[in-house]
Amino acid sequence: MFLVSALLVGILFAVATYLILQGSFVRILFGFILIANAANLVLLSMTGDPRGRSAPVVLDETVPMADPLPQALILTAIVIGFAVSAYLVFLLYRIFLDWKTDDALALFAKKKPTDA
C-alpha cells in the first residue's frame, strides 16, 4: 500500500522531470502539471493507510477517520496549481505570438522579438 503510492510518486516525478528538461515549452507545461499532481500525491500519502477508515465526515464518532489536514492542503494546492498552469498556458501563447517559436533553446538563442 505505502510502497505502491511511493513508487507511483517516484515514477510521476521522474516523468515530469524528464518533460521539463525538454526544450519545448508545451512539454515543460505538461511536465509542470504532472509535477503538481505528483506533489499532491506526496501529501495524500501522508494521510496514512486509508483501509478501515472512513472519509473525514463526522457522522459517527466511533469510526476511525482519515486525516483531514492533508486533504485540505491538497484541495488548496489543486486550485492554485490550476491557476498557475492557466497562467502558463497564456504565457506560452504569448511567447509564440512574440517569438514564433515554442522552443526554449531557440528563444534564448534569439535576442529580441521578431518583427514581422
Binding site: F2, L3, S5, A6, L7, V9, G10, I11, L12, F13, A14, V15, T17, A38, L41, V42, S45, M46, G48
Partner: peptide, 15 residues
C-alpha cells in the same frame, strides 16, 4: 530517474 528515485525514497520514508 535520480529525481524519481529521490522522491520515492522521500515519500516512502515519510509515510
Amino acid at each position: 530517474c535520480a529525481v524519481g528515485a529521490t522522491m520515492f525514497l522521500l515519500t516512502y520514508g515519510t509515510i
